[in-house]
């Protein structure tokens, strides 16, 4: 097995003194696709937020290692520059900052040098076309007045632009129509390669179409209670979480 990209060990996370995750373990290697499922409120988004470094969540125990480096105490921007990315469920609106200038600033921050304007523009236009985004969106203020679907596409556009090593997608498919889910899935496929990895939080098998999922984890009772292969997605889609939740065999990835 190659060196792990992400190593979450015995993680305990609280928000406003309420423990959400406890004893959570997860290892993700380059090239892998992990799917995280579980009932509402189980803490799936909390895990993604804790890995990204959301300051509202307190890490009370355990560690988050990325490429062998302990990032548990590092701020979100440090983690982003190391190659961690999160596609948010509810992306923030930033008035007065165009999508294009934001992406150029962010790419400059991640790469450590400003990208060349014309080349950047061309690459951006290609990616927007892949995502069926109208070219005019690059001049619009970031997420301001975007529909739910447009915001999610803009998140995937950021993913494609920043090319992180680990991409976490937090219900990127929720609230999208069938065509938009397909487009987003195309974007994810275009991003994925043997050197990067995905952690996809979803209730919906559609977004996984065309992706070679390696592991499916079920999160419940503060930690991962079941891990299986891609067949688990169909099982859960058809029968729900019956037989997979607490009391079942624990097998953290």
């Amino acid at each position: 097995m190659s060196q792990a990209l992400l190593n979450v060990r015995d993680l305990k996370v609280a928000v406003e003194e309420k423990t959400i995750l406890d004893g959570l373990n997860l290892t993700v290697c380059p090239g892998e696709i992990h799917v995280l499922m579980g009932p509402n409120g189980a803490g799936k988004s909390t895990l993604a937020a804790a890995i990204m470094g959301d300051p509202r969540y307190t890490i009370e125990g355990g560690s988050i290692e990325f490429e062998g480096e302990d990032l548990t105490d590092k701020a979100a921007d440090v983690r982003a520059r190391k190659g961690i990315f999160l596609s948010f469920q509810a992306p923030q609106e930033i008035p007065g900052v165009s999508l294009e200038s934001f992406l150029r600033t962010a790419l400059g921050a991640v790469q450590g040098k400003q990208p060349k304007v014309m080349a950047f523009r061309r690459a951006l236009a290609e990616k927007m076309e892949l995502l069926n985004m109208d070219a005019s969106y690059s001049e619009r203020y970031l997420n301001v007045g975007f529909s739910g679907g447009e915001k999610k596409k803009a998140e995937i556009l950021q993913l494609l632009t920043l090319q992180p090593k680990l991409a976490m997608l937090d219900e990127t498919d929720s609230g999208l129509d069938v065509d938009a889910v397909k487009t987003v899935a195309e974007g994810i496929k275009a991003y994925h390669n043997e050197n990067n990895a995905l952690l996809i939080i979803t209730h919906n098998a559609k977004i996984l179409e065309g992706l070679d999922v390696n592991y499916v984890h079920v999160l419940d009772d503060h930690h991962i209670v079941h891990t299986g292969g891609p067949e688990l997605v169909e099982q859960i889609t058809a029968h729900g979480f019956a037989g997979l939740l607490k009391g079942a065999d624990q097998n953290g990835g």
Partner: peptide, 9 residues
Amino acid sequence: YYLMSRGLT
């Protein structure tokens, strides 16, 4: 936080 998650200090 959103902007920091994209690498900005």
